[in-house]
């Protein structure tokens, strides 16, 4: 197991390098001189030249690239000129906000999606099951930006229940904090909720008619434990896969959600930085997101073992066989 994890961590390096190369090329291909955009229309040609040199943009592309990779490998993320602070501080400031949003969305998705899926499986072909199927299908195909705008229109503009944008502050009390959190969390949670619900239903249906579920009943266990302990633990493996995929794609969803709700997380930061042509921020944030992505996937793969004792890990090239 230790060997397996080490192998997987070593495997992350090439993945991250590839991401680094791609994002480097993309930021360099954006039209316009970043220095000019950063300084604004009033800047003189000299000012632009000075900044271009400072950013190293006058060097040949390969030199820029090796500088960049070299710094990255030393853990030196550099400074943002537009935000006027080290990238690392920018991450420390913004990332917790994204985590708050993502975790609360994930909680909603798990707490709503999983029980709904279990009940639908238990009451297969009932009215609940049909309604469930319809809503979960709507949920997975919901465009986040559209849903976000509808939520704002309805709950903020029409009903005035929740603020439309921004992040509340704990200084204003927990109420302020939560009321700002609700709409963006719902927007971000919709797709994962529907996904969890669908996968829970289908994997529970597969498991619920198994002999060991009958054995559990024949022991005299309460139906709740029969379903939620004996059946559910067997249905967890596919659910974990979806969990990993959803956490990853929530990073993308966070970019959209944060933009709609002006939520000051890393998603909004990236969009902002693209607008300002702050390629240093964009590059580093994309790599940071890629890092989260691979770490989450590793954690999911490790947790398979916890729910399914039959999985044996081979060290080296990764994979769970």
């Amino acid at each position: 197991m230790g060997k397996y994890i080490l192998g997987r961590i070593l495997n992350m390096i090439p993945t991250l390098l590839i991401v680094a190369v791609i994002i480097f090329l993309i930021t360099r291909m954006l039209p316009g001189n970043p220095a000019a955009v950063m300084l604004g229309p009033q800047a003189s040609a000299e000012e632009i030249e000075v900044l271009t040199e400072k950013l190293g943009l006058n060097e040949p592309l390969y030199i820029q690239f090796f500088d960049y990779i070299g710094n990255l490998l030393q853990g030196n993320l550099g400074n943002s000129l537009t935000y006027n602070m080290p990238i690392i501080d920018l991450i420390m400031e913004r990332f917790p906000n994204t985590v708050i949003l993502a975790v609360s969305a994930l909680l909603i998705a798990i707490l709503v999606g999983v029980p709904a899926g279990i009940i639908a499986a238990r009451k297969q072909n009932s009215i609940f099951d049909y309604a469930f199927t319809t809503f979960s299908l709507m949920g997975v195909s919901m465009p986040i930006f559209w849903l976000g705008i509808m939520l704002v229109l309805f709950f903020s503009v029409n009903l005035g229940w929740f603020p439309a944008t921004g992040m509340g502050s704990m200084d204003e009390g927990i109420g302020d904090f939560i009321s700002h959190l609700i709409l963006p969390s719902i927007a971000l949670a919709t797709i994962p909720t529907a996904q969890f619900a669908r996968i829970t239903r289908s994997s529970m249906l597969e498991v619920i008619s198994q002999d060991y579920v009958k054995t559990a009943r024949s022991k005299g266990l309460h139906e709740f434990f029969v379903i939620c302990k004996h059946a559910f633990k067997n249905a967890l493996t596919p659910l974990l896969t979806v969990l990993g995929l959803q956490i990853s794609s929530m990073l993308g969803g966070a970019v959209l959600t944060e933009t709609i709700f002006s939520w000051p997380g890393i998603g909004l930061l990236i969009i902002d930085a693209i607008g300002k042509r702050d390629f240093v921020v964009v590059q580093n944030m994309v790599i940071f997101i890629a890092l989260i992505y691979v770490v989450v996937n590793l954690l999911v793969d490790i947790s398979y073992k916890l729910v399914n004792p039959r999985i044996k890990y081979s060290s080296g090239k990764g994979g769970t066989k």
Binding site: S218, G220, H230
Partner: peptide, 25 residues
């Protein structure tokens, strides 16, 4: 009825390969 199952009356099934839960010891 639950108090009787597994306590006063218990049952074993045909296929031992599937009647034990694979994810518990």
């Amino acid at each position: 009825m639950r108090d009787i199952r597994g306590n006063d009356i218990s049952m074993i099934f045909q296929d031992p390969l599937t009647s034990l839960n694979p994810v518990f010891t």
